[in-house]
Lab assay of single mutants.
Amino acid sequence: MGFKLLSKLLVYLTASIMAIASPLAFSVDSSGEYPTVSEIPVGEVRLYQIADGVWSHIATQSFDGAVYPSNGLIVRDGDELLLIDTAWGAKNTAALLAEIEKQIGLPVTRAVSTHFHDDRVGGVDVLRAAGVATYASPSTRRLAEVEGNEIPTHSLEGLSSSGDAVRFGPVELFYPGAAHSTDNLIVYVPSASVLYGGCAIYELSRTSAGNVADADLAEWPTSIERIQQHYPEAQFVIPGHGLPGGLDLLKHTTNVVKAHTNRSVVE
């Protein structure tokens, strides 16, 4: 069995187990497998329904001669939608809004960016022009300005110390501490036991640490421990890039980060 097929099978099995364990909360999309990078042309966006009122959005972007996937989250909030992270750029984010209108038909009224990198804030200006209120932590807003990236308009308070959590509509926002970046936030959907790890969490097929220019490698494993301790009931975990899975993604990420750190020390 090929690795790609095995990865998709694991996603399907995880979703099936969740649907059985929580039949009222989960209505997993039966329309197909989780979209992969090879299936999404740059400039297009796919939506994948995880649970009743919960979707991931998947886009792709060219970077350094390669094409990478990027995940975000959409959560229903009454007759409105909360968006977590842009679709990595203005063109993708405009396509995301169009796809949401086509498939869901509810307005996106608020959006949260989970850290300051372009795959999370690139497209904020498109959201703002569409009347979406954009939010991020003060740290993310400051770092985005320093980096020359787009800056969300509103500040999220109460997320300055490791372990801080605040309720934001249908989700809980959690600051686990520094990891992929010093400002990275985690998003949890309690009604569906869905954990969105953003770039602080890796997919299972990833074996290298990737972009760690703004990471705190020493603190990252401790931050992941905080996530595990705060959300032990999480059933569906979405990484910032690639295929979702279960809580095993947290341990896998820790292993990859520690291996990278150990290699760096040896070198």
Rank of each mutant, 00 (worst) to 15 (best):
S113L: 05
S70V: 04
R120G: 04
G158M: 06
T182C: 05
E101G: 12
F168T: 02
Y196W: 01
H230E: 11
L47Q: 03
F3I: 15
H154Y: 10
H252E: 00
A51M: 07
L173I: 14
A59I: 11
G245W: 02
C199W: 05
I74E: 02
E33G: 12
K102G: 11
S193E: 13
I17Q: 07
G158L: 06
V187E: 05
G89P: 04
R110Q: 12
S62T: 08
Q229H: 12
V11N: 11
A130D: 06
R128A: 13
D29C: 07
H154R: 08
K258W: 09
F3L: 08
L97K: 00
G122C: 07
D79P: 09
G72A: 01
K8R: 10
P69A: 15
L82R: 03
T134Y: 00
F168M: 10
A192E: 09
L250C: 01
K102H: 15
V67L: 15
E80F: 08
G105W: 05
D216G: 05
F26N: 11
H154Q: 09
I201K: 03
P244A: 06
Q103L: 14
V237R: 01
T60E: 05
S113K: 02
R206P: 05
K8D: 13
T36I: 15
S161M: 14
A209G: 07
G2C: 10
S191I: 08
I201V: 14
I227P: 02
R76E: 10
D248V: 08
L81T: 05
E157V: 12
V126S: 06
V189A: 05
Q235L: 10
V11M: 07
F3H: 07
G198H: 04
D29G: 11
D119M: 01
L195C: 01
L159D: 01
L156P: 06
P107E: 10
S56P: 09
V42K: 10
I84F: 13
L13Y: 14
E145M: 14
T36M: 12
D118Q: 08
L10H: 15
A136V: 04
V121D: 04
V257D: 02
D118C: 05
D52F: 10
V166T: 09
S193N: 12
L6F: 09
V11C: 15
F174H: 02
E172A: 03
W55C: 04
C199S: 03
A59G: 14
D85P: 00
S62N: 07
V189T: 03
L81V: 10
I201F: 08
I201M: 07
G163T: 06
P152N: 01
P35M: 08
E39H: 12
S30F: 12
V37Q: 15
V11P: 15
Q229A: 14
E147I: 13
T261Q: 12
R46I: 12
L73F: 05
S7N: 10
R167N: 12
P244W: 06
L9N: 15
I186D: 00
T14C: 11
D214A: 07
S264T: 12
S137I: 04
I104E: 00
E203R: 01
P244L: 06
D29Y: 09
G32E: 10
P176I: 01
G78S: 09
L47W: 02
L204T: 09
T182P: 14
D119R: 01
D214K: 05
S181M: 01
H241S: 00
Y12S: 10
T207S: 12
A218G: 13
S181H: 00
D216M: 06
T36P: 13
I50V: 12
I40T: 11
G246D: 13
G158W: 04
A165K: 14
E157I: 11
Y34T: 08
Q61E: 06
V187C: 02
V237I: 08
T109V: 13
M18L: 12
A59W: 03
L143I: 07
D64L: 10
G2I: 07
V132P: 00
A111Q: 07
D248H: 08
S264D: 13
A129M: 11
T140A: 06
K251H: 12
A111K: 02
A87N: 04
Y68G: 06
T134M: 05
S62M: 08
R141D: 02
A87E: 00
S62V: 06
Q103T: 14
E99K: 13
H57K: 00
F116H: 04
A51P: 04
Y68I: 15
A133F: 09
L250S: 00
A87I: 01
A98R: 14
L6E: 15
A98I: 09
S208H: 11
G43F: 06
Y12V: 10
R120A: 05
V256N: 03
T261K: 12
A66E: 15
S205I: 08
L243V: 15
L249I: 05
V132M: 05
V37W: 14
G245T: 02
G123R: 04
L13G: 07
S223E: 00
S137L: 11
S31I: 08
S38E: 11
R110E: 07
V75K: 02
P41K: 14
A111W: 03
L173Y: 05
T134F: 01
S139D: 13
H230R: 15
G122N: 14
Y231T: 01
N71D: 05
R206T: 15
H115K: 01
A130K: 14
T253A: 05
G65H: 10
I224M: 05
A98E: 12
G53F: 08
H252P: 02
E33L: 09
S56I: 15
P138M: 08
F26W: 15
Y135K: 00
V54M: 06
E157A: 12
G197K: 00
V256H: 02
S7L: 08
L195P: 06
G89L: 04
R226K: 08
V266D: 14
V112S: 02
P221M: 09
G65D: 14
H117Q: 05
V67W: 10
R263I: 14
G72Q: 01
R76A: 10
A111S: 14
S160F: 10
K8Q: 09
V42D: 15
T14K: 08
V108L: 09
D248T: 09
G43N: 10
I50E: 03
D125H: 10
V112M: 07
T93G: 00
G122E: 08
T140M: 02
P176N: 01
V257Y: 03
I104L: 07
I50Y: 04
V121P: 03
D52L: 10
V189P: 00
